[in-house]
């Protein structure tokens, strides 16, 4: 088992490397660099630009180095010092800005993932066992609808509905009075009251997909000979289903973290922009529009790392759940 985890960890290194390359590419992609645009705006507003100061800045940020040297400086900064570069827009180190926001993204990811599982597992099992029943068809219909509605449209619609019919404005994770307040029971309850809309918005598509996968898998498993064996033992039907085929059909649900998590993080980004949640999304969009590339690149890198860690956890869970993987 330890060997297995170690192997998975080693296997992650090239993927991490690839992700860092993509993030770096995005940082480098916009034409020119931040300094050029800063100089441009300074000259425009009639400020004096000291060429020596510019040269100094260029050297500090290594804008004149060859590209691989720049990458090396950037990545070693992150790995050895936790230094993600400098946010030019905020004029602060990127690392000061990101952790808070990534925390929000992480919280929402976990909450949404739990929601996805809590909803899709019982419905998936029910739909497979009662195939072609009316409720199965209803679930299937809503599943298709859930897949077809993009996150942000769902968010806008829910916002409209609650504004129009419930008379409350949705958005943010806290009511205004709690925003700066220290943690308390009241704040936690307020947080939970705000959490459900984003969680539903973010989780719907994943839930719909997972229901389909679980239904298809369980339908296959229900016809396997070991189910007949379990039945022939004299187990009651619910136990036959829950103990054997469901246990095996859950494997893809667990391994689904691998693709559900990137989708959730992706969904959180856009939903957070619409609902104005304090996660990485809105800040990332702002950074991209103002071409504050170190900040933007760091977010993209960290979101990738987040999903990668999720995959590692799903691999480990899977190995715990299925001895066939453990022994391979």
């Amino acid at each position: 088992m330890i060997r297995y985890i170690f192997k998975r960890l080693v296997y992650m290194i090239p993927t991490l490397f690839g992700m860092s390359l993509i993030a770096f590419l995005i940082i480098q992609l916009p034409p020119g660099d931040y300094l050029t645009s800063m100089i441009a705006s300074m000259t425009q507003s009639g400020q004096n630009v000291d060429p020596r100061q510019i040269a100094l800045l260029r050297e500090i940020y290594g804008f004149d180095d060859p590209i691989h040297v720049q990458y090396w400086k950037w990545i070693t900064g992150i790995v050895t010092r936790g230094d993600f570069g400098h946010s030019f827009e905020w004029n602060r180190p990127v690392s000061d800005l990101i952790w808070d926001r990534m925390g929000g993204t992480l919280t929402l990811s976990i909450a949404s993932l739990l929601f996805v599982w809590a909803v899709s597992i019982p419905i998936g099992i029910y739909s497979a066992v009662r195939r072609h029943s009316i409720s199965d068809h209803v679930f299937t219909f809503f599943g298709f609808l859930g897949l077809a509605i993009p996150n942000f449209i769902l968010a806008l619609t829910l916002m409209y509905v609650s504004y129009r019919f419930l008379g409350q404005s949705v958005g943010g994770l806290y009511s205004p009075e709690y925003v700066g307040a220290p943690m308390s029971w009241g704040k936690l309850l307020d947080f939970l009251a705000h959490l459900w809309i984003p969680v539903i918005v973010i989780g719907t598509a994943g839930t719909a997909k997972l229901i389909r996968i679980l239904r298809a898998n369980l339908t296959d498993e229900l016809h396997k000979p070991y189910v007949v064996t379990a039945r022939a033992k004299g187990l009651p039907e619910y136990k036959v289903v829950l103990k054997y085929p469901v246990r095996i059909a859950l494997n893809p649900v667990v391994s689904a973290i691998g693709w559900v998590l990137p989708e959730l993080v992706s969904g959180i980004t856009i939903t957070a922009i619409v609902l104005n949640l304090p996660t990485a999304g809105p800040l990332l969009l702002r950074a991209l529009i103002s071409q504050d590339m170190y900040l933007a690149g760091s977010f993209i890198l960290l979101m990738g790392v987040l999903t990668l860690v999720g995959m590692l956890i799903s691999d480990i869970l899977l190995a715990l759940l299925d001895p066939r993987i453990r022994f391979r």
Binding site: M19, L29, S266, T269, M303, T307
Partner: peptide, 10 residues
């Protein structure tokens, strides 16, 4: 493995 929307945005 990369979340798509942030990458698209980038």
């Amino acid at each position: 493995a990369m979340p798509t929307i942030p990458l698209w945005l980038g």
